Lab assay of single mutants.
Amino acid sequence: KTVKFDGLQFDFDNPEKALKFALEVAKQKGAEVHIHGDEIKIE
Rank of each mutant, 00 (worst) to 15 (best):
K1Q: 10
K1D: 03
K1S: 13
K1I: 15
K1L: 14
K1Y: 15
K1H: 13
K1N: 09
K1A: 14
K1M: 15
T2V: 13
T2D: 04
T2R: 06
T2F: 08
T2E: 04
T2M: 05
T2H: 07
T2P: 03
T2Y: 08
V3T: 01
V3A: 04
V3R: 00
V3L: 02
V3N: 01
V3Y: 01
V3G: 03
V3F: 02
K4Q: 07
K4F: 14
K4S: 11
K4C: 15
K4T: 13
K4A: 08
K4N: 07
K4G: 04
K4I: 14
K4D: 04
F5Q: 04
F5I: 08
F5S: 01
F5D: 03
F5N: 01
F5K: 02
F5Y: 11
F5A: 03
F5T: 04
F5L: 06
F5M: 05
D6L: 07
D6F: 07
D6Y: 08
D6M: 10
D6C: 15
D6V: 01
D6H: 07
D6W: 08
D6N: 11
G7M: 06
G7T: 04
G7W: 05
G7D: 06
G7R: 03
L8E: 06
L8K: 11
L8D: 04
L8R: 06
L8V: 07
L8N: 06
L8W: 09
L8G: 03
L8S: 05
Q9L: 09
Q9N: 07
Q9K: 11
Q9D: 04
Q9V: 13
Q9I: 13
Q9G: 04
F10W: 13
F10E: 02
F10P: 01
F10V: 06
F10Y: 11
F10D: 02
F10N: 01
F10M: 05
F10R: 00
D11A: 10
D11N: 12
D11H: 15
D11Y: 15
D11G: 06
D11E: 13
D11R: 12
F12A: 02
F12H: 01
F12K: 01
F12Y: 03
F12G: 02
F12E: 04
F12V: 02
F12Q: 01
D13M: 08
D13C: 11
D13A: 08
D13K: 07
D13T: 09
D13V: 08
D13H: 06
D13N: 08
D13F: 05
D13I: 08
N14G: 05
N14K: 04
N14D: 15
N14Q: 07
N14R: 04
N14A: 07
N14M: 06
N14H: 07
N14E: 11
P15D: 11
P15S: 11
P15K: 06
P15M: 14
P15G: 10
P15R: 07
P15T: 11
P15N: 08
P15C: 14
E16R: 05
E16Y: 09
E16V: 09
E16N: 06
E16K: 05
E16L: 09
E16F: 08
E16H: 09
K17M: 14
K17S: 14
K17A: 15
K17W: 10
K17E: 15
K17C: 12
K17F: 11
K17H: 13
A18I: 00
A18V: 00
A18E: 04
A18M: 01
A18S: 01
A18W: 06
A18Q: 01
A18L: 01
L19A: 01
L19H: 04
L19K: 02
L19N: 02
L19D: 05
L19F: 08
L19R: 00
L19S: 01
L19C: 15
L19Q: 02
L19G: 00
L19Y: 10
K20P: 01
K20Y: 09
K20N: 10
K20W: 10
K20E: 13
K20I: 11
K20V: 09
K20T: 09
F21W: 12
F21L: 04
F21I: 03
F21N: 05
F21H: 06
F21A: 05
F21R: 00
F21P: 04
F21C: 09
F21G: 04
F21S: 03
F21E: 06
A22E: 05
A22W: 04
A22I: 03
A22D: 04
A22L: 05
A22T: 01
L23S: 06
L23P: 00
L23E: 10
L23T: 08
L23Q: 10
L23K: 08
L23R: 05
L23D: 05
L23I: 12
L23N: 08
L23M: 12
L23F: 11
E24G: 01
E24I: 06
E24M: 10
E24L: 08
E24H: 06
E24R: 03
E24C: 15
V25E: 05
V25Q: 06
V25K: 00
V25I: 13
V25G: 00
V25Y: 09
V25C: 13
V25T: 05
V25H: 00
A26I: 01
A26V: 01
A26Y: 02
A26W: 00
A26Q: 00
A26M: 01
A26D: 04
A26T: 00
A26N: 01
A26C: 13
A26P: 00
A26R: 00
A26G: 00
A26F: 02
K27D: 07
K27H: 10
K27A: 13
K27F: 11
K27T: 11
K27G: 10
K27R: 11
K27N: 09
K27I: 10
Q28P: 02
Q28A: 12
Q28K: 12
Q28W: 13
Q28E: 12
Q28M: 12
Q28N: 09
Q28H: 10
K29V: 14
K29F: 15
K29W: 15
K29Q: 12
K29M: 14
K29E: 10
K29S: 12
K29C: 15
K29D: 08
K29P: 06
K29Y: 15
G30L: 06
G30W: 06
G30H: 09
G30I: 02
G30Y: 05
G30D: 08
G30P: 03
G30V: 05
G30T: 01
G30R: 05
G30E: 07
A31M: 14
A31S: 07
A31H: 09
A31F: 11
A31K: 06
A31D: 05
A31I: 07
A31Y: 14
A31P: 03
A31R: 06
A31T: 06
E32W: 14
E32P: 05
E32G: 08
E32Y: 14
E32K: 13
E32I: 14
E32V: 15
E32H: 14
E32S: 14
E32A: 13
E32Q: 14
E32L: 13
V33Q: 03
V33E: 02
V33T: 03
V33W: 04
V33F: 05
V33Y: 06
V33I: 13
V33D: 02
V33H: 03
V33L: 10
V33R: 00
V33S: 02
V33M: 07
V33C: 13
H34V: 13
H34C: 14
H34P: 02
H34L: 11
H34N: 07
H34D: 05
H34Y: 12
H34W: 12
H34S: 11
H34F: 13
I35W: 09
I35H: 07
I35Y: 08
I35E: 05
I35G: 01
I35N: 02
I35T: 04
I35P: 02
I35R: 02
H36Y: 14
H36F: 12
H36G: 07
H36V: 13
H36I: 13
H36K: 09
H36A: 10
H36E: 12
H36N: 12
H36D: 13
G37V: 06
G37W: 07
G37C: 12
G37L: 07
G37I: 08
G37S: 05
G37Y: 06
G37T: 05
G37K: 07
D38M: 09
D38L: 09
D38G: 10
D38P: 06
D38T: 11
D38H: 11
D38F: 08
D38A: 08
D38I: 08
E39I: 14
E39N: 06
E39H: 10
E39M: 11
E39W: 10
E39L: 12
E39D: 07
E39C: 15
E39G: 02
I40D: 02
I40E: 01
I40S: 02
I40N: 01
I40T: 03
I40M: 04
I40H: 02
I40C: 09
I40G: 02
I40K: 03
I40L: 06
K41E: 11
K41N: 12
K41W: 15
K41T: 15
K41H: 15
K41M: 13
K41G: 05
K41R: 15
K41F: 15
I42D: 04
I42M: 03
I42R: 00
I42H: 03
I42S: 03
I42L: 07
I42Q: 02
I42V: 11
I42T: 03
E43V: 14
E43A: 10
E43G: 13
E43Q: 11
E43D: 10
E43S: 11
E43W: 12
E43R: 10
E43N: 09
E43C: 15
